[in-house]
Structure formats: structure tokens, C-alpha cells
Simulated assay, not measured.
Amino acid sequence: MLSAAIQILAFALALLGVLGTTVATLLPNWKVSINVWTSIMTPISQMQGLWMDCVWYTSGVFSCTMKNSVLSLPASLQIMRAAMVLCCMVATFGLCLASLGLKCTRWGGSHRAKGHTAIAAGGCFILASLLCLVPASWFTNEVITTFLTTDLPDNSKYQPGGALCVTFISAGFLLAGGVIFCLSCPGKRSRRPDYAASADPDRFELHRDERRRRELQVEREQPKNRKNKSVQLQTDEVKQEKATKALELRLYSSPSKLPQKDIKDSYSLQEYV
């Protein structure tokens, strides 16, 4: 897995990409027409964007008109709008995942879970960069094609504006951040304790404390087990002794089964008589 410094760099690039795409989506200068006139109230610059059209006059007045009617807009412009909005949403979601997948943060789960989260964030950034590049390239192609094919004078034609440059640069930032995050593979697990401690020291400390607690619990239970075993042995011995005494009593109570010593004593008494 990549180091924390490289991940922070990728997060910064992705953050710049998200801010750039958001600003470029709202900017009105996707294409610009520069007109130079002698009159004071004539426009010197006309700009068109995804959401508004603006005019800048020689007197310093700057006015904009919103494109409120969705049905009157061409289909290509509506698709570009949707792509840029979706790009901003996916990139923002990727930032949330990236904050969980950073190694310098404490949230996000284990070491392996952070790696998978970072890879998911990288995929979101790459997808957002593609969603940003497609409408920017499409819009640039339309502007250049119109500029080269129409017979209008040059002062009435439109050229690519600064918003397109911001869009391409932001897409590059998102792509770079996504590729770096996708390289954050968690790798294979190792059974060596030193690697486990270096990879995730908090987890290793937790396992060590848990193992120590279990050892102490076993040591506390050992005297109780020994005491229970000794009491069980004594109980067995008492039971065995009682059983032996009961057997002897049954044998002595029977007249036909007298002890051998008593039989010999009776024979000697008869001989004496």
C-alpha cells in the first residue's frame, strides 16, 4: 500500500479537481466572442456557457441572461449539463471515500478495509474525470468546427473560452488522483508478528492485550479446577470405603459364611471338650 504522504498528495489533487469542475460548470465563458466597436454602448465581448449567456459592454456594464427554458435548448447542451453535474456528484462522493481510505486517519476500519475504500475512491475519481472530459471535448469540437466552417466575419465568431481550460485541467487532476488511489492495493496478509505490528500497531496491541487477558483468566481458573478435582477424589474414596464396609457387613451377617479364623477357633474348642 502507498505511503500516507502520497495518499495526501492524491487527495489534494482530487480536491482541486472537484473545485475546478464545480467552478467550470458555473462559469459563463465556455465560448467567447471578441468584438471591437467604436460606439460606447456596443458590446466588446459576448460569452456563452452551459447555464447563462453574458455580455460585456465598453462602458464596463456586465449583464447575464439565464437559460431557463430547458425545452428550447439543443440536446447536446442538455447532455453536457447532465454530464458535468454528474461529474461533480461522483467526484464529491469519491472525496468522502478517500477521506475514509487515508492511512493517516483513524476511521475507515482495518488496514485492508482502508485499502479497498481507497481503490473505490480512485475509481470514482477516474469516472468523474471521464464525465468531465467528454462534454469539454464535445463542446470544444463544436466551437472549432463552427469557427472553421461558417462564412461569418471573424469578429462574430466564437472561440473556446477559459472555462474549457479549467475543465481540462480539473479532469487531469481528477485522473491523477484516481490513478494514485487505485494503486493503494492492500496486498497479501503476512503471518509474521513484526509485519503485523508495523502494518497496524493498534490492532497488534489489541490482540496482545486480549491474549494476556485470556492467560490471566486461565491462571485464575486453574486453582478452582484443582480444588474441584481434589474434592472429587476424596468423595470417590469415601464412596469406595463405604461400599467395602457394606460388603463386609453382608458377608459377616450370613451364618454360613463366617470368617476363617472363627471356624478354626470352633474346631479347637470341640477337640478340647
Rank of each mutant, 00 (worst) to 15 (best):
L164C: 02
L127G: 09
S156Q: 12
G122Q: 02
I263V: 11
C132G: 14
T58H: 14
K264G: 05
I263H: 13
A4Q: 01
A82I: 05
V166W: 01
P255M: 03
C88K: 11
S230C: 00
V61F: 10
I44N: 15
L183W: 09
S170P: 14
V32K: 00
P135A: 00
W30R: 01
R250F: 13
S72F: 00
L164P: 07
G94P: 15
G20H: 06
L2G: 09
Q78I: 03
R189W: 11
L133M: 10
A171W: 10
D209G: 09
T25N: 06
V273C: 08
L258E: 13
A120C: 15
R81L: 00
K31W: 13
Q240L: 15
A14S: 08
I169M: 10
R189Y: 13
E142A: 00
A246P: 06
V179N: 08
L2F: 12
W107K: 01
A171E: 02
A246E: 15
R226V: 06
A163I: 13
L131S: 00
T145Q: 11
R220G: 08
A176G: 12
A121K: 09
K227Y: 01
F168T: 00
E210L: 14
S110W: 09
G20P: 13
Q232T: 10
E215R: 13
D209H: 14
W51M: 10
R208K: 10
P255V: 02
A136H: 02
F204R: 02
L16C: 07
L249P: 03
S110M: 05
I119W: 07
G20T: 11
P255R: 04
A199R: 15
V90K: 02
L97N: 04
E241M: 11
P193V: 08
I34T: 10
M66Q: 12
T92C: 06
S268F: 09
R250N: 13
W37H: 12
L233C: 03
M66W: 04
L127C: 01
L13K: 09
L100C: 04
C124P: 02
A128D: 09
C96N: 00
I180S: 04
V231S: 01
S253R: 12
G101E: 02
K224N: 15
E219Q: 14
L19A: 13
Q240F: 05
K245N: 05
S137K: 02
Y252N: 12
K67V: 04
F93M: 15
V36D: 09
S76E: 11
L216M: 10
M80P: 04
P153I: 11
Y57L: 04
A243D: 06
T145G: 05
G49K: 02
S76M: 11
A196T: 03
V238K: 11
C185Q: 12
L77Y: 13
R112I: 15
F168V: 02
F11W: 08
Y57V: 04
G177I: 08
G187A: 10
L258K: 13
S33T: 09
T146V: 10
F204S: 05
K67C: 00
C88E: 08
L97K: 14
F168P: 01
I126S: 05
L2P: 14
T38D: 07
I126H: 12
R112M: 05
Q217Y: 04
F93D: 15
D236H: 14
V23A: 08
V61C: 06
T22N: 13
T92E: 07
V273W: 10
C88M: 14
S198P: 01
